[in-house]
Design a protein around this nucleic acid. Structure first.
Lengths: 338, 338
DNA sequence: TTGCTATTGTGAAACGTTTCATGCATGATT
DNA sequence: AATCATGCATGAAACGTTTCACAATAGCAA
């Protein structure tokens, strides 16, 4: 009995089945082959526990069935969810995901793109912070929430409309004096439009409007001072707040509670994203919900479709509003602060 | 001027630099080579924008510098954190991560292991649910929190001690009647020992002890009925609860609040894991903290070390206790319910 | 100057696939 | 029965690296 020390190759299978190399290849790739041959090859494969070598495959064929996904991290629940959904979509189509955590560092991002190209990935999906990434033009790149450059499609939600909805909702709920709270500053950042939309809504509904914007490096605690300036012995200047993300909203609400400002009685708070913590158990707050499933599916679809010519530059999905306890209405869904 | 349509190869570089193929290979791999040769090759590389083809490399060399990481998902903050830390450790060592989300499905797990083997990964790190996975013995597998089989190292924290600490803490804080709440049932599951440790501690400190265990499929809401059975017009049978994870603790605390049982005044709650939500902003509850950094680093170290012979079967890291508002003591750290 | 050693660059072979031009059977056509 | 068309299996070549036996060169001793 012949004993091979290393893993069996297609050649071994061909030998075992008594067929040619090309025939084995055809069987593996599901190409038409005579029934008796197919059976012989399949028998040999399972007898030898043969498994294809993806590296040899990737070397020969241009397609490697792997996609790089660039995310700042997976600790942030928004990024985690997105990663999860993209992965699910890729798996469904027999693709593998090479996850690259960039820590929001432009240098890391560039480095990972190089690595991705070396790995001959079939494409890259990225939520990036480097406004002028160098991407090899013959590799497909799909950007999430950022407009990165000419010819690179950007998938996002309707951030402008979301901001506007938040303003209208607060107006409907009786607010008169509202504020917008935001972190991050990138100009190519689609979520910027949340602010414009909110402003627009405030104007239309005649709300007094203010905003506080933190730069990228600043700690979230800097909001505390801003809020405190607007507190005068038990009275709070604002009766409505719109936060750029649910995470910011979470921090703000915690601070307000510490300062004995009641949510939603004294001030109503609306976030953005629609995060559901602990495997979709609870929303953080009343919020503008992004359809992340649709966004993830669209990224993958755009990436893998063949008609490269007809890629629209910007794809926006509609958002919805959900109340979850931080606004003065019957909560539709359970929330962290319900 | 010669125009190449496809990406440049080592051969192109050799031609451009006027050296042999092997010399280029040496330069790329940092092997000793004459100074003048090195410079010529480096110049050619940057002129042609040459990038190595990992697939050709992986085909020839046995080492591919990639590691598969099997996780149920990344939406659960515990898994997310672990993934993040493992990735960081791998990146530090120039390895790539192939993330496989198994959805806790044994069939998926097996399938991903097959894919990983086809991709000739240098090893697999997994937190799995299939008690009898078939892993090719000549591929290194490191298991987290599960004892999977003979010869497969398991990295975890000291779950038994953690359970015992929880019991002692509750006793110290004046509890007399306590309960343990758990989900999941796998017998090879290291976290099972949290229960044994807790029981042990209860015995030692003479606490009245009860436990409620949900099977794997059961929804977390099933705890509600159990808790309700122990409520008698405003009075709650337990003055201390130990939950197998912070996530279970979160759910329990939310339910108790709805039922007007006060935490920590009426009942004190301790969780397990030491999750910190929103990028390490807040602990969920008073909890037994796992040193996830150490666990992640150890997994990677074990996987990549050469002395395959001396792998201890089980590696436990010590745990610590942190109070964060759901126990009757000054909180050391801010918590979700502070 | 000759001969020997030590050093270092060279390039063919091999890794395990896919692809495609080739040729062999088989069955249809006249 | 002879010819032809068709379908399908065949296996050599190629993909872009690494490796290693070999050759060339330089340095040194006699």
């Amino acid at each position: 009995m012949r004993k091979k020390s290393s893993a069996p190759t297609m050649k071994d299978v061909a030998l075992e089945a008594g067929v040619a190399l090309g025939t084995v290849s055809k069987v593996i790739n599901g190409l038409p082959v005579g029934e008796s041959y197919r059976l012989r090859v399949e028998a040999a494969i399972s007898k030898l526990h043969y498994q294809v070598n993806s590296y040899a495959q990737g070397l020969k064929a241009s397609r490697t069935y792997s996609v790089a996904v660039l995310m700042p991290n997976v600790s942030n629940p928004y990024f985690a969810r997105l990663t999860q959904l993209i992965n699910r979509e890729l798996t469904r189509r027999k693709y593998r995901m090479l996850l690259c955590c960039t820590e929001s560092d432009p240098a890391f991002e560039q480095e990972y793109i190089t690595i991705a190209q070396q790995n001959k990935v079939d494409g890259i999906i990225g939520l990036t912070y480097n406004p002028n990434l160098e991407v090899n033009p013959d590799i497909t790149f799909i950007s999430i929430d950022r407009t990165v450059g000419a010819g690179i499609p950007c998938v996002t939600c309707d951030n402008f409309m979301g901001g506007q909805m938040a303003a209208e909702k607060l107006a409907d709920l009786g607010c008169r004096n509202v504020a917008f709270l935001r972190v991050g500053s990138s100009l190519t950042n689609e979520p910027n439009k949340r602010r414009s939309g909110f402003e627009n809504g405030c104007l239309a509904r005649n709300l007094n409007y203010e905003s506080k914007i933190l730069q990228d490096g600043e700690p979230i605690e800097k909001f505390d001072a801003f809020l405190q300036e607007h507190m005068h012995d038990g009275r709070f200047d604002f009766d409505g707040l719109f936060c750029v993300t649910d995470m910011v909203a979470y921090h703000i609400i915690k601070f307000l509670k510490r300062m004995n400002v009641r949510v939603p009685e004294d001030v109503q708070v609306i976030g953005f994203d629609g995060l559901q913590l602990f495997e979709d158990l609870h929303y953080v707050c009343s919020t503008i919900v992004q359809p992340l499933e649709d966004i993830a599916a669209m990224c993958v679809q755009l990436l893998l479709q063949d008609n490269l010519g007809a890629k629209p530059p910007l794809i926006c999905f509609p958002v919805t509003y959900v109340s979850a306890g931080t606004t003065r209405e019957e909560p539709e869904k359970p929330g962290l602060f319900t």
